[in-house]
Simulated scan of single mutants.
Amino acid sequence: MTGVPFTTTADVHSESFAGRLRAASAEDWEAAVHHRFVKELFAGTISDEVLARYLVQDYQFFDAFVAMLGACVATTGSRAARLRFSQQLGMLAADEDGYFRQSFTELEVPQQEVENPALARPTEEFVTQMWEVAHARDYADLLVVLVIAEWLYLDWGELDRELPTTPTHRGWIDLHRGDEFRAWTQFLIDELNRVAPEHDDDAAARLADRWHRVVGIERAFFDAAYEA
């Protein structure tokens, strides 16, 4: 079974705000999407040690990610968007948290390591970015971080490759592919384009700066999975 290529509004309209930001960060973006971690995950050859290290670090984003969605509920001026963010909060509490807990059991990760690990530097940096935008409650700023977190993962999740059979490998890929995740990511991209500054002003530059920093952190996060 292979993935379905994902075409977003930002792909079709490369001059959209999100499309321009993605194009400007193409080097780090593509390096993350085609990272060794992704290749080994799809091939089913990734070691339990590397996968456990990666998932433990990724789980440290969960609380801040929920807080970002809550901040979006509180700050968006769109009733439809508020409902969409609320729906996603429910999915996170059920599906994604369930995957983590099941995987930690199967990979025999001690509870202490799950709850209080030593954070890799990219993890610390990303958590800082997430809490910063969650506390600031600037809707466009929140969307920049959310779009990167979801769009970059959708890009690797829907690579045209055979899927692995091991549940811990396949499960992480399945969370980041398919119609529902594609629609969620498209919603975020469309929202960012809708509220982005119309002119190349200080606000746009601030958002672009955060975008480039966060994409760089995402690339480094994949690297950190191989650093014991």
Rank of each mutant, 00 (worst) to 15 (best):
L119C: 08
P167V: 10
L154W: 03
H135V: 15
T9C: 09
L89G: 09
K39M: 13
S47K: 12
H135C: 12
Y226C: 05
E227V: 10
Y153S: 02
A149D: 07
W151H: 09
Q129L: 15
A52Y: 01
A81L: 14
Q60A: 08
L119Q: 12
A67P: 04
F126C: 07
D63H: 15
F222E: 03
F6A: 14
A71N: 10
A64N: 13
R20W: 11
V114R: 11
L207W: 09
H34R: 13
D190L: 05
E158P: 01
D201I: 01
A208I: 09
F187T: 06
T8K: 02
R177T: 04
T105L: 06
D155M: 06
A203V: 11
L152V: 12
V215C: 11
T165Q: 14
R79W: 02
Y99C: 03
L51T: 08
Q57A: 13
A24E: 14
D48S: 10
V195D: 05
A18R: 00
G44M: 05
R20A: 10
E30M: 04
R161W: 07
L55I: 07
H176I: 11
R137C: 12
V133E: 09
V109W: 01
I46T: 07
W29R: 00
T168M: 08
L207S: 07
D179E: 15
P197D: 05
G70Q: 08
L119A: 12
A204K: 05
L119M: 14
A224G: 11
A93M: 12
L188W: 02
A183G: 01
A31N: 09
E113R: 09
L89M: 14
V66L: 13
D201E: 10
R161A: 11
L51E: 05
F65G: 00
T168F: 00
E162Q: 06
Y99E: 01
G216T: 06
L163P: 02
